[in-house]
Design a protein around this nucleic acid. Structure first.
Lengths: 342, 342
DNA sequence: CCGAGCATTGGCATCGATAACATTGTGTGC
DNA sequence: GCACACAATGTTATCGATGCCAATGCTCGG
């Protein structure tokens, strides 16, 4: 039975107005609304009725000022439209929303320490209670370390600072799944198009790939490097396609994999008949590419949720010992991989 | 020469601390920092020095409380990872950042009026100075209208309320470009896979497509409907591929177009030899699909920037007459379209 | 040489909610 | 039946910056 009485003309109703209408003090209103135990059921009802009648909404600015709690977390990401960023941010946002937290985002155009610092400062200025860093920290400046000390921070890429918790997908496992899948199909060895070196997950994938090959005693081909973009995948595909030995490629992201496949196609190498390709991420389009893309699915949503839940715990008790968390990727076999021809 | 003196132990320095160090009053500090004209250069310098020395950062909560200005805008989007959403949000974020505004986001899982209301309220509670609605307003509730009256709001989808400015891409033009391109290639007529009916831009595209066909006196095939997802494109592709007449299809988004092409491929209809396909958006992968996708590029970044600049103007002067703004899409011809066979 | 007028700066109240403390009222044990 | 504990509510100070108005000091014209 909502209803915004007559006094609409002036400013929005404050706690004092609610108190007046309910016939109690402002403090009681505060307690009733905060769910404080020591409030009579009758009083709480009166307060709620008054709130409803006036259409009262708490003033976050004031609450923040006096209590220091903003019920907001900040997210730092790179200014790109890659699927991983989007999916992750989405997961974080949803989880935060469910936890009753608002999300403020600050994107950075580059990975410079100073740019990241600036993003973190922008968020700190908004008094976020926690921070999720979804970018790699190339160099941890003194400023950054101080910030992570002051604001509970979770890093997603896996970059560590002395005062940061880490939530990550086991990227090495992702790589091992992909590589082993290709070896199981009978390929002699597997080539790799890696992500940019600054990204720890790119490095972990490369490392996992290398580990499997070495464990199996296969020759380890030189590593090719991309920048996550389809275009960079394409460039590397043009190289791979010209090397007769290549029969299997593990690409560090689906988007690059699309580029690789496209290049191979142009060079007349068929996928998967001549060359098998595996990506990482399981973007929505992976299934609808020709051929549909075998890939390692990343549980972005869960990761976002995990990051938020850890952050909440960390916020609630900053002294709790940081415990790194990780979730597991899963292999999704589609049509871009096939047994090696003999 | 930054430096955070010794008094780190206690709480962060406030304006009073700066004032003390600089040997002036808090007001003067406020004025100096706000760039107020009537402050002596010498004083301002002293203040800045003190700020620097203490590592002072303004307290946004307090500023917001006393001045009412939060320097934050809110964005409401749908909880999806479609490219258009991502790209647009990115553009808004970047533009806002440049304008010195922070961005708070609230995603909604559904398009229910009540869900959107909730998102808007969440943002309103954070005292955003302006709002960007990037979701279609199916039904404008009283609550929503009141909110848009209280908070300057820009809608991106094109949905209008009595008190809202609109920024949009000319979607009808996008559709006309695509359709005409296909007709110019000699196709008898063009089929259309539309987006969900709730979305105004989907409707505009359908309308533009229909207009061109009618203007040219072509038969207007029945309209197929998708939900923006690749999967829905695939389903519609399975239908289109079974209709012998079909030689040209205009799909309302690239992601759906991928699905359509995939389905046609599976049915043995070649693209573009048998059927030409045009999408909308120009996602990064469009160029790396096989065949590379002809599409209508949407200037998402500019749109975000335009939305923000209009919002700034609107915030600065809420009484200014709303003037709808629009930007133009451009056709990008790639390999998924070819002349009709005779 | 003096007062008007402007440029600078300081004091005080204020925004809205909350924490800490004070106060009233109620029940219970001995 | 009295004191003491505890539950329920009210009072006051506070968070940090800003707006408004007053006060100071300086310059310039007459």
């Amino acid at each position: 039975m909502k209803n915004q009485s007559v006094r609409d003309a002036s400013r929005p109703p404050g706690m004092a107005d609610v108190a007046r209408v309910a016939g109690v003090s402002a403090q009681t209103v505060s307690r009733a609304l905060a769910g404080h135990p020591n409030v009579q059921e009758k009083t709480r009802a009166k307060v709620l009725a008054a709130v409803d009648q006036l259409g009262y909404r708490k003033n976050n600015a004031a609450r923040m000022l006096s209590s220091g709690r903003s019920r907001t977390i900040g997210v730092v990401t790179l200014q790109t439209s890659f699927y991983s960023r989007t999916a992750l941010t989405l997961g974080i946002e949803r989880a935060a929303q469910e936890a009753g937290y608002a999300v403020s985002t600050a994107t950075t155009a580059s990975l410079d320490t100073s740019a990241i610092e600036a993003s973190m400062l922008r968020l700190a200025d908004q008094h976020v209670e926690g921070l999720v860093l979804a970018v790699p920290l190339i160099h941890v400046s003194r400023q950054i370390e101080q910030l992570t000390r002051a604001v509970p921070t979770i890093t997603i890429d896996g970059s560590r600072t002395p005062t940061t918790e880490v939530v990550a997908v086991d990227q090495s496992l992702a790589a091992r799944l992909a590589t082993r899948h290709l070896l199981d199909l009978g390929h002699e060895t597997v080539w790799h198009v890696a992500g940019p070196g600054e990204w720890l997950d790119a490095a972990s994938r490369a490392q996992g790939w290398r580990a499997v090959l070495e464990a199996e005693g296969r020759t380890v081909p030189p590593e090719l490097k991309g920048d996550w973009s389809p275009a960079s995948g394409y460039r590397n595909g043009l190289i791979l396609g010209r090397i007769p030995d290549v029969t299997a490629v593990f690409v560090a992201s689906d988007e690059m994999a699309f580029g690789v496949i496209r290049a191979l196609h142009e060079l007349g190498r068929r996928v998967p008949e001549d060359i098998s390709v595996v990506g990482v991420d399981d973007i929505a389009l992976a299934e609808y590419c020709s051929p549909s893309l075998t890939t390692v699915a990343q549980p972005f949503a869960e990761m976002g949720a995990l990051a938020v839940s850890h952050l909440m715990r960390y916020i609630a008790d900053p002294d709790a010992s940081p415990e790194p968390a990780s979730v597991e990727p899963t292999l999704v076999v589609r049509a871009s991989t096939a047994p090696a021809r003999r």
